[in-house]
Amino acid sequence: MLALLYFMTSCFDIISGAVAVPICHYALKAYKLSKRRFFLFISTAFLLLATGLISHGMILFLILATRPARVLIALTSTYSALISILLELLAYMLIAIGYHEEIKKILAVPLIPIGPISINVLSRMIGVVLLFYITINQFLVYVRVRERGSLLLLVAFISILVSYVMHLHALLLVKSEVYIISRCINFFGFLILLYMMHYVVHGGGIEKA
């Protein structure tokens, strides 16, 4: 069961990380063309996401392939998960800053209860707040432009937000099935991002300005 969970997480992470790479590439191109800092934030954020996800996935895959001692498994998987979640947080923070700078919509950030909670729970909580902010901004973008690409990005962010909320729920209530569902929803979000990139690269009818 644990091996299956590791395998699933490893595959999901590597594929999700691979999806983040073209987004980083196109954001960098957009930055080079327009010199808008927003795209630099997006590019850096997706680079961090890709790095975190791919490295975490590869480490899990290596653990599965080599089957080292239990202590080593626990240590490497814990630390790689920690590094991955920190990189994800940093990435979502950069996206949120990008939206904030570009769209100038100020949203009151709710207070995060900091008490005797683990780093994992705390980081997920911060992630939920950041993703909520990003999703609200993308919703405003979609309402303004009413385009399929924007809708796809909105759905992707909503999926990732839902997965974060479910992951938090799984951590607090220690429910493995909720964790598996949260991973699946997160992966679904990245698949939507992949579809969005397909839409961007292979055309989707630009309305003439």
């Binding site: 954001a27 191109k29 063309l33 327009s34 997006i42 769209i103 432009v145 385009e147 796809l152 969005m196």
Partner: peptide, 10 residues
């Protein structure tokens, strides 16, 4: 790249 930027409303 233009389509990509429009996804973000830019």
């Amino acid at each position: 790249v233009e389509r990509f930027a429009r996804v973000f409303g830019l």
